[in-house]
Simulated assay, not measured.
Amino acid sequence: MKVLVKAQVVMSNSAKKLILASTSVYRRELLERLRIPFTVVSPKVDETPLPGESSVDLALRLAKAKAAAVAKDHPNAWVIGSDQVADLCGAAIGKPGNFERAMAQLQLMRGSSVTFNTALCLMHGDTESTVNIPTEVKFRKLSDDVLEAYLLAEEPYDCAGSAKSEGLGISLLEAIKSDDPTALIGLPLIALSGLLRDAGFEIPPKK
C-alpha cells in the first residue's frame, strides 16, 4: 500500500476533482463546510461484517472499500470514503433501520460508554491514506418513555447508535470525548483537512 505524502505544490481546488463516496446527507453537509468543490457518487459496497472482525477493522475496511469502489471508475479523482461503527464492549452497533431496532440499541447503551469508530480514507489512483478517529460517548440512564419520545421526535434510524448528537440526540448523552468533534456526526473534518492539504488542496480556498 502506498501512503499519500505531502504535496510540494498547491494547486487551485478547481483543478482537482474531489468525490465523496457516500450516500449520507450528513457527510455531504459536513464536507460542504470546507468550501471545496466536490461531487457525490454512491459506492456499491457490501457492508456485512466478516467473521470475528472488530469494529475498528470493519470501519476501516468499509471506508477503504467505499473509496475504492468509486475510484476505479474515476482514476483521476481524489475520492473520500468514510464509515462509522459503534462498539459496546466489543460488539458492533450499526444503523438500526427502524424504530424497534433503534429502541433496542438505546436500551442496550443507556448508562454505558460506547466508542464510535469513524474511519476515513482518501484515495487517488494507487495511493491512499486511511485513519480511524475514535469518539467515546457516555449515554445517560434514561427511561423507556424518554427513549421512545426521542425516537419518535427525530427518527434517527439511519445513524449508527440511534442518536444524532448534532440534533436532539445530544440530550441522551452525558459526555463526549474526541479529538475531532465532527467524527461523531460521520466525517472527521480535522483529519480530512490535513489529508486534503497534504494532497495539495487549498483550505480555506483562496478567493
Rank of each mutant, 00 (worst) to 15 (best):
E148V: 07
Y150V: 00
L122W: 03
N132A: 07
D144T: 13
E128T: 13
A104Q: 13
P96C: 13
M123L: 15
K95P: 03
Q105S: 09
N117E: 11
E148T: 12
T127H: 12
S143N: 06
S143M: 05
Q105T: 15
T118K: 01
E100R: 13
V137G: 04
D126I: 10
K138E: 00
L142F: 00
T118S: 09
T130C: 14
Q105A: 09
H124Y: 06
T118H: 01
P96M: 10
L88P: 10
A77H: 01
K95M: 06
H124K: 12
T130W: 01
T127M: 12
E155D: 10
E148N: 09
M123C: 12
T115C: 12
S129M: 11
R110S: 02
F99T: 01
L147T: 04
P96T: 13
T118V: 04
P96D: 13
D83R: 05
C121V: 07
Q107C: 08
E128F: 06
L151R: 09
R110E: 00
A102W: 07
C89G: 02
G111T: 01
R101N: 14
W78T: 08
L152Y: 14
D144P: 06
A104E: 14
M103E: 12
E100C: 05
Y150R: 00
L142C: 02
G111Q: 02
I80L: 05
A104L: 10
L122K: 04
E154R: 04
G94V: 08
A69R: 13
W78K: 02
L108M: 15
E136Y: 01
A102C: 12
G125Q: 12
Y157M: 03
Q84S: 12
A102Y: 08
N117G: 06
D126S: 14
I80E: 02
L151V: 09
E136D: 06
G97N: 06
H74D: 04
Q105W: 08
V131D: 05
A92T: 10
T135G: 04
E154G: 03
W78F: 15
G97T: 02
A69D: 15
V79S: 11
A69T: 13
D144Q: 13
A68F: 01
H124E: 04
R140P: 01
E128S: 15
Q107S: 09
L106M: 10
Y150I: 00
L122P: 05
A92S: 14
N132R: 01
G90A: 10
G111A: 01
A149N: 11
R140F: 00
Q84T: 15
H74R: 08
D83L: 06
I80K: 08
A91F: 10
L88K: 11
V131K: 09
D87L: 05
A71F: 12
G81F: 03
N76D: 15
Q105Y: 13
N76R: 14
C121H: 02
I93H: 03
E154V: 07
L120W: 02
D126E: 15
G90C: 08
L120N: 01
T135L: 02
I80M: 07
C89H: 11
H74Y: 12
K72L: 11
A102R: 09
A68N: 03
E155Y: 04
N76P: 02
V79N: 09
D83W: 02
C121R: 03
L106G: 05
Q84G: 11
